[in-house]
Simulated assay, not measured.
Amino acid sequence: MQTQIDQLMSRYDGPGPGASLLIVRDGNPVVRRGYGFSNLEQRTAAAPDTNYRLASVSKQFTAAAILLLAEERKLHLDDSLRKWFPSLPDVAASMTIRQVLSHRSGLIDYEDVIPPELTRQLRDADVLAILQTQNRTYFPPGTGYRYSNSGYALLALIVGKASGKDFATFLEQRIFAPLGMTNTVAYEDGISTVKRRAFGYSEEQRSWTRTDQSQTSAVLGDGGIYSSIDDLAKWDAALYDDRLLNATSRALAFTPISDTDDPTVRYGMGWRITQEAIGGRTLWHSGETVGFRNVIIRYPEQRFTIVLLTNRNEPEPYQTARAIANLVLK
């Protein structure tokens, strides 16, 4: 089976940017290994403790932070966005935290309306400033689905307001440290560091170019967390019991709320949900940003999880991870 898995992972092996692969069954790692390189310039091999920028895989942590604060009644899921951000335009009055979590708010994509004079790297607060100028929506809140990085940037700011701590500190103190995720960080340049960091690359004219950061890479709530397969194994284990979120919160996260653009996929709160022919129900999320493509797929009925983190612009890892899961579960 390892030979077959290596064949499926062959594009990541060799002298280029690589990947780290984790397969967990019944709480035990079945496969835990790296392929290729996490840093081409220094020829650093990818390993189980290599930390990759998770991109939108980060959204499950943002959602968990909101659900933790809801458990503590420091916020309510049906709060209006205007309660937390009075500076938002009138259209935000009927948008709720619950809708934002499941991409049903109708918020405008901040990436499409960045002012041309704003050329520096953006932070979550900049997303709020941009949205303050947008008194329009894609649809009336609660009536449709549109995947929204804007919403998750606002959720990170709400975590800060509701907890009295900045988003990165809250994650560290309430999620990462309690779970023993000692190398996971919501990365802020000049404030925090990433240990054993993978750098992102893109293939251009048959050679690899470092493409590690974009203008939006410093926005934390929608994609700014770095982690490893070793730390994500601890995260996965915590989602089976009450050590982090209670049963009610986990049910909220894992219950389908929104139909999506793909009729086979629904969305809960920070998780996509599908039904597979092999393995049954899956809870998953992909993440894509300049130089990184990642996926985590959980098969809770099988107590089986696969995590594939990569520091390259292609290939897309979801189908590779599914093929590996089907191989192991068949």
Rank of each mutant, 00 (worst) to 15 (best):
M269F: 15
I278T: 15
Q7M: 08
D124G: 09
N326C: 01
S192D: 01
T264R: 14
R11G: 02
A198N: 05
S202Y: 00
W84H: 14
Q2N: 15
V328A: 06
Q42E: 13
V113F: 15
Q213G: 00
H103A: 11
R82F: 06
S148G: 03
D222L: 11
L67G: 00
I225T: 01
L81T: 10
A45T: 12
K74C: 02
G190V: 03
Q60E: 15
A247N: 09
V194W: 01
V159M: 06
D109C: 00
D231Y: 03
M9T: 05
G106N: 08
Q205G: 00
M9Q: 03
A156V: 01
L245D: 06
L232R: 03
D13Y: 00
R322S: 04
K74Y: 05
V194F: 00
R298N: 12
V30M: 11
P15L: 10
V24D: 08
K161P: 07
R303E: 14
G279M: 05
I278Q: 11
R32D: 11
Q132K: 15
L157R: 08
G287K: 01
P141K: 06
G36P: 10
K330N: 13
R25K: 14
I23P: 01
L309I: 11
G27W: 13
A168D: 07
K59G: 09
G34D: 07
I297L: 13
D78T: 12
P140H: 13
Y110L: 06
I229M: 02
E288Q: 12
F176D: 03
A251Y: 12
Q7I: 10
I191Y: 04
F85Q: 08
A125D: 13
A46F: 07
V31N: 02
L157V: 13
L122T: 07
M95D: 02
A45Y: 08
G224P: 10
A325F: 03
M269P: 08
Y35S: 03
R11V: 14
R136G: 00
L101S: 08
D230Q: 06
